[in-house]
Write a protein that binds this DNA or RNA. Structure first.
Lengths: 334, 334
DNA sequence: CGACGGTTCGAAAACGTTATCGATACCGAT
DNA sequence: ATCGGTATCGATAACGTTTTCGAACCGTCG
């Protein structure tokens, strides 16, 4: 296990005929080295293919120019965020690393904290955490939270307007004439799930229609959990004519369940989702849903993180707008 | 930019009343420390929440216990691999970091080499590269290639049996009575695309049906490129009755084009894909395709990498089987 | 009783980088 | 000539860890 080929700063220094200190200055663009020297050293660096040793760099300066993004799992939601984030990072001088807990469903809740402890201050200069449960963060290490769990988070956050989106969705269903509207809500510890349910209730109240409590149920944000809930809802004697699912995954799951129960969508049941993951355009029927600008959220969170590290003063809570995407899974009640 | 809170090995040593050398031995499970001391130090480590500084660790020992997986972009294909890989890594003692070039379409070809140069030997102990163009790798640093570009690669690889899969697909269409079969092939510099086209031609030849060269066209593996190609194919005066698309993305794209041209699938056109990405089950009609065990490929590549690093002797070329997944996008020719 | 093997521990030297700060060279002005 | 002031550069001390190697101790055996 040897790394014989790695060229280090002292090699560059020797063949350029200067000291390592000077090479370091050139690499980091510090003041105090003659233009001619700069160019010579640059040339040697290029010729030798020198790359700074991240470990040593971090050890000495506590900076690595590497940013991390932590997701629970690589599913469509996170993936879209990742796309936006990795696009944003290009040209920023940072590298982006994605990290997944990798441990499935029943994983310990504190995985992000452990990962962060391990990575922070040594491997990465900052991180964006998706759907985090943690709030505390050690001083001097920057993290921004995307779509955090409930609770007063002191962290900088970026999310979308979940409440307004839920109102949008509910109003759309209402405008189609639906009154018996079911809601499959997400994990109650998720701030976004809570807000979506709140928006749903608000819109119903504003329209003056009472919500039948038997029609709003926790389904989880995962596809399996939602299936059971959808089945319960649809098996009800007077089942809802429309379902507002807490996210696209559970909406898609509802579509499946309806099909297997012989309930045609949208004819006998309207379904609306939330998120607008790419899949929602592909399912049959194409899903009407609320669009969260996922890629943009990823991009914004990275930009925010970079700004935070650079110390620029700015608003640390970004809320992006949601919008209704009408496809084919809803229709007016006869 | 200070990190005041970070507890270092010397802190542990001091409060445990031993030297840093001893702590290091405990952490790394080295021989030569009394059982009682081990337990005392372990306790202190836990109490103080000590985490090794990856930078210093790597600097000194050239090991980080971090593995990387490099993908060009976070699309369904890579994502499935990532899932498999991150599942496999759990409990292996390694951490897994995903890295994406982030730069879109026209990015420089050598991005992986640059990334690898930067990360290798300092940040990660080894890497799996998805769809790599590079072949060379510095000595002592292990990489395994998934679905590599064409050319004799000296790298350890894992892929699926693209040739056999293409034969499977073609034979299926043939068995349905199709003779005018079109093929949208992937980027010609991809080994897998080349093999799929070869399998297609082989199966046609074996069945004694000549391939009409106007019906096999390069479409690229990206959804946009494939759309144009599909449109050309379907606009032909005597258009094919079936299309074997080089991958699911182009198959899905073909479905779209067919719909917009008013050609019903599968009634007037059969379409078969390759990969079996999750999306293919969701589209309308659900796509008949060839399944590559993507998650398993991810898992196998990680296992291979770990074994390689550990120095175990084993076959360094893994080829996983493909299989036909019949859904609803093909039907017998009348 | 001295030597010896085994066990447990710590001092100290790396690893490759960055930051400080003193040394040197050079310049124009007195 | 001497001097103050700038540029330019290099020695050197960290950073937190791993590893080597010898010291110290204890019990055993000849």
């Amino acid at each position: 296990m040897t790394f014989p080929q790695r060229v280090k700063m002292s090699d560059v220094a020797r063949t350029a005929g200067v000291s390592v200190a000077t090479v370091s200055k050139v690499v980091n663009g510090r003041y105090g080295v003659a233009q001619a020297t700069v160019e010579r050293v640059r040339q040697v660096i290029h010729d030798l293919g020198y790359e700074a040793d991240l470990g040593a760099q971090s050890l000495r300066s506590h900076r690595t120019n590497v940013l991390g993004i932590l997701v629970a799992e690589f599913e469509p939601f996170s993936t879209e965020l990742l796309k936006g984030a990795s696009r944003e990072v290009a040209g920023s001088g940072y590298q982006l690393l994605a990290y997944s807990s990798g441990d499935g469903e029943g994983a310990a809740i504190g995985w992000e904290r452990r990962s962060l402890a391990r990575l922070s201050g040594t491997l990465i200069d900052g991180a964006v955490i998706v759907t985090p449960t943690v709030v505390e963060t050690k001083h001097g290490f920057h993290v921004v939270a995307v779509d955090p769990h409930t609770g007063p988070s002191g962290l900088p956050t970026v999310d979308s307007d979940n409440f307004a989106g839920a109102v949008l969705a509910t109003n759309y269903l209402l405008s189609l004439g639906h009154r018996r509207i079911g809601h499959i809500s997400g994990r109650p510890d998720l701030e976004s799930a809570r807000l979506r349910e709140a928006g749903f209730r608000q819109a119903m109240a504003d329209a003056g229609v009472a919500v039948d409590e038997r029609l709003v149920r926790v389904g989880g944000f995962r596809i399996e959990g939602a299936a059971g809930t959808a089945a319960e809802l649809l098996a009800l004697p007077d089942r809802p004519t429309a379902i507002f699912a807490g996210n696209d995954l559970s909406a898609i799951s509802t579509l499946d369940v309806a099909r297997s129960m012989g309930i045609p969508v949208p004819d006998d049941l309207s379904v609306i989702g939330f998120d607008n993951v790419p899949e929602s355009a592909l399912v049959d029927p194409p899903l009407t849903t609320i669009r969260q600008p996922l890629q943009r959220m990823g991009a914004e969170s990275l930009r925010l993180l970079i700004d935070l590290i650079a110390g620029v003063e700015r608003d640390a809570h970004i809320r992006l707008p949601t919008e209704l995407v009408v496809r084919a899974s809803c229709r007016p009640l006869d």
